[in-house]
């Protein structure tokens, strides 16, 4: 019970901190002091205080987009176990719900973008839909491998693996899906090398262009949902990367937060040392993620 409350509290409060860690890492690489670690919280507070400005061409879909996205990622966050602690919700087959909650969120984001009637945003929607076609199979293959390893179709059991950690015989498939999932994480959360969250250039935007017309509280909801998405996918990846646990149960919470911050630092390092890929090269990256996860499955069943 206490663990469930901590789970929900972390899911609600912690995600913007990860964005702060990423930005701080990038600033450190650039030799700058950078914004304070808590800057994303201040930004969100500022955005939520602003008034609503809505275009007259938009309908309720435009307002529903960010809200549905937030609801979807929060629900997805309840389905996954954080560290060694059980998930608040779980049933057999919830991995499909997990994958398609992201699909639903994406559908509403693209629908809201199309609702503005701007050709520019339609372009972004088309890009997002195209790239998600490639990242979804990678995620599914990765979950399939984990399901095969643990013999369970419930995210809670599947991610935490068999009792006592994964057998050493499966290091090779796990290495492969760890890399595949990291690429999926970068693609889904719109980070470099797939998408640049800071760019506002017509040629290069994917996610940013779809939310150009959102402002004030709606933009705040979108930023918050993006941070939660990073948190959720990061926790999934951590199950593959660091399936360790400490003997004292409560110490696993700080350990988990430390690991997650470490992952955010890794994302920040990737963003600092890599340039954004050319738009026509992004599918190569995503196809290779699918290949890694697919190979991992073949290795397992051969």
């Amino acid at each position: 019970m206490v663990d469930n409350i901590i789970h929900i509290a972390l899911l609600l409060v912690f995600p913007p901190f990860l964005l702060g860690v990423i930005n701080k890492t990038k600033a450190w690489f650039g030799g700058r002091v950078g914004a304070p670690l808590l800057q994303p919280y201040y930004d969100l507070a500022k955005l939520f205080q602003k008034e609503w400005v809505l275009s007259t061409t938009t309908t309720w879909i435009f307002r529903a987009g960010p809200v549905v996205t937030l609801a979807c990622v929060l629900l997805a966050g309840l389905l996954i176990p954080l560290g060694r602690f059980a998930a608040p919700i779980g049933f057999a087959g919830d991995l499909i719900l997990f994958a398609y909650l992201f699909g639903l969120a994406r559908f509403f984001t693209t629908a809201a973008a199309l609702d503005t009637g701007s050709a520019f945003e339609g372009m972004g929607a088309a890009r997002e839909a195209t790239f998600s076609c490639l990242s979804e199979p990678a995620l599914f293959f990765a979950l399939l491998v984990l399901a095969k390893l643990s013999g369970s179709l419930m995210l809670g059991d599947l991610l935490r693996g068999p009792l006592g950690g994964f057998a050493p015989t499966v290091i090779a498939p796990l290495v492969l899906i760890a890399i595949g999932l990291f690429i999926v994480l970068l693609a889904e959360t719109c980070r470099i090398p797939v998408d640049d969250p800071n760019t506002h250039l017509e040629l290069t935007m994917i996610h940013e262009v779809m939310v150009l017309d959102h402002s004030g509280p709606l933009l705040g909801v979108i930023l918050y949902a993006a941070a939660i998405k990073l948190f959720v996918l990061g926790s999934v990846l951590l199950h593959v990367l660091a399936p360790v646990q400490l003997a004292t149960a409560w110490l696993n919470w700080p350990l988990f937060l430390l690991e997650l911050s470490g992952l955010a630092v890794a994302v920040g390092i990737v963003e600092s040392i890599m340039a954004r890929l050319q738009m026509r090269h992004v599918p190569y990256l995503l196809v290779s993620a699918v290949l890694f996860c697919g190979f991992s499955f073949i290795l397992l069943v051969r």
Binding site: P168, T169, I171, A172, P173, V175, L176, I179, Y284, S288, L291, F292, F295, L299
Partner: peptide, 21 residues
């Protein structure tokens, strides 16, 4: 042998990476 397999998987990925750049 498991560590060996992990290394070989990395080698396989390097093959694909080399082909793709």
């Amino acid at each position: 042998i498991h560590l060996l397999n992990a290394i070989l998987v990395l080698v396989l990925m390097m093959n694909l990476f080399a082909l793709g750049t």
